[in-house]
């Protein structure tokens, strides 16, 4: 098919638009000068300052723990939810169930954050749990969002899966749990990894919901970055952004390459 000049220039414009801020961010992070427009020479001093910024480091550690915990919980619950939707046919309450799974995908973050905060405050008033807000309340909030996304990813893989192997194992007398562990799980493993990574990234990136449900003393990395950025330009944030871009690029490209190799 012939490629039109219009489409090519649209692609060029689109990618330039998507990547210009990222390229600039990386450039600024190595700029000796604090002023973005003046190139003061190559320097890694902002990375040094970032490393010495204990607030950022503590927040990053908290964020990684929150993201890993909530992504794991979301993966477990999401796998169950996807199994129920794909394999159970019609069951009582299926409409409500799939509605509840889809709604967090389109729910504005401010509403979800406010709603969960109201729940946590009322629960604490009523039964004394959660005792103050922080790690556990952020994990619960992120699990709810991650669960919805994880289900979408795992569900589509489960729906495409060839069921003849599972049926053969059932015919040979394997129990459903064993069939799931020995046959289904290995087949859908790549989608499980993708779902976990998606939930992990969403959690690591969230500032709005976490701001609502956190308490004093528990600042995630996005919360710290957000308050630093609101005060004005901070070259350390450029360095942090560059590190994030580097890590994400390595993970995504490796994953894509591995998936491609497996397909071949």
């Amino acid at each position: 098919m012939k490629r039109s000049a219009f489409l090519m220039s649209a692609l060029a414009f689109g990618y330039a638009f998507l990547y210009a801020p990222i390229v600039l961010l990386v450039t600024w992070s190595f700029n000796e000068s604090r002023v973005a427009n003046i190139w003061g020479g190559f320097s890694t001093k902002w990375y040094g300052e970032l490393w010495d910024n204990s607030e950022f480091l503590d927040a990053a550690w908290l964020s990684l723990q929150v993201a890993a915990t909530s992504a794991t919980a979301a993966l477990g619950l999401g796998t169950l939810a996807a199994l129920a939707l794909v394999r159970f046919g019609r069951f009582h309450g299926r409409g409500l169930f799939s509605g509840l799974l889809a709604a967090p995908l389109v729910m504005p973050e401010v509403i979800l954050g406010l709603a969960l905060l109201l729940l946590f405050v009322a629960l604490e008033d009523l039964i004394g749990w959660p005792d103050g807000r922080g790690f556990s309340t952020i994990v619960i909030a992120h699990t709810t969002v991650g669960l919805a996304y994880a289900t979408v990813v795992i569900r589509s893989r489960l729906a495409q899966m060839d069921r003849s192997l599972e049926e053969a194992a059932m015919d040979l007398g394997a129990r459903p749990v064993k069939v799931f562990l020995v046959i289904t799980l290995p087949v859908i493993a790549p989608s499980l990894a993708a779902a976990w990574l998606l939930a992990f990234t969403l959690s690591l990136d969230d500032v709005v919901v976490a701001s609502f449900v956190t308490g004093p003393g528990a600042s995630t990395l996005p919360i710290e970055v957000f308050s630093a950025v609101r005060l004005g330009v901070s070259p350390q944030v450029n360095a942090l952004g560059t590190l994030i871009v580097a890590v994400v690029a390595v993970i995504i490209v490796t994953g894509w390459w591995l998936a491609g190799r497996r397909a071949r």
């Binding site: 973005a36 427009n37 500032v207 996005p222 970055v225 330009v233 952004g241 994030i244 490209v253």
Partner: peptide, 28 residues
């Protein structure tokens, strides 16, 4: 397609922050 998805996986907050540096009065 990968190039379209990649920015989505990097920090949303930091990408919005990059626009502050581009768009401000003495910006790029």
């Amino acid at each position: 397609l990968l190039l379209v998805i990649l920015p989505f996986w990097t920090s949303f907050l930091i990408r919005v922050y990059a626009w502050m540096g581009i768009l401000k009065d003495e910006g790029l």
